[in-house]
Amino acid sequence: MRSRLPVVLVLPAVIGLVFLLVPLAGLLINAPWATLPAQLFSQEVGQALRLSLICASLATVVCLVLGVPLAWLLARSDLPGRGVLRALVTVPLVLPPVVGGVALLLVLGRRGVVGQYLDQWFGISLPFTTAGVVLAEAFVAMPFLVISVEGALRAADPRYEEAAATLGASRWLTFRRVTLPGVMPGVIAGTVLCWARALGEFGATITFAGNFPGRTTTMPLAVYLALETDPDAAIVLSIVLLLVSVAVLAGLRDKWISGPS
């Protein structure tokens, strides 16, 4: 049986889809297809792409390790001022990324509040390093993970956890065996968002980690600089970044999110 789709929903949905996809079509139409293969396999592109994938993945790991517990704290604990904390966690979402980068410099830079001790005591200087790129990306991307995991946790039925507790499970065991599997779709959606955001990160990265080929030049930075002199190259780089991210995201989706839920 077929039910009629309501026009009130379908029309804006289609407009929304077109709105999101037309800029992508613009890139594809303007792509210099003749020189594309040569650009694709140039050393700089390979270097920037590899660095982007590595940094975005490491940043996502950082976000998972720190973000999931943070989401749990926000959703399950009875901390005073939880609402304020939750709002504060979303600050990197609102902050222009360049400002986020400056903030990171002020804290972790060579003269920063914390950074000056890192430098003096351990000789660690984070700006202009690959580790700096990972940090900048994690800073900007973590709220996406926290918010989606927290939403899933709040929507989950706490009675399962209570049941586990009455059966004698510790809180850690309950978290691992009951809570986490229950919110897995939320965690995966958050991870995907977080990774995608990290991959496209520009402002905080170039401000905090700078731009040096092979060390801190990720794809978005390469795209921006290419735009200055060679818009065609910038389009090619953008398409490469898009294709790779779409391929990875589609692959993950098939593997983890499909099937009966």
Binding site: V102, L105, L106, G109, R110, R111, P127, F128, I206, T207, A209, G210, N211, F212, P213, T216, L221, Y224, L225, E228
Partner: peptide
Amino acid sequence: APDTLEQDVKAVLTKVSLGE
């Protein structure tokens, strides 16, 4: 031997004024 190649002159200046 630069450590960073910035996207514009103001970004370079920020790094200098912050002492980075």
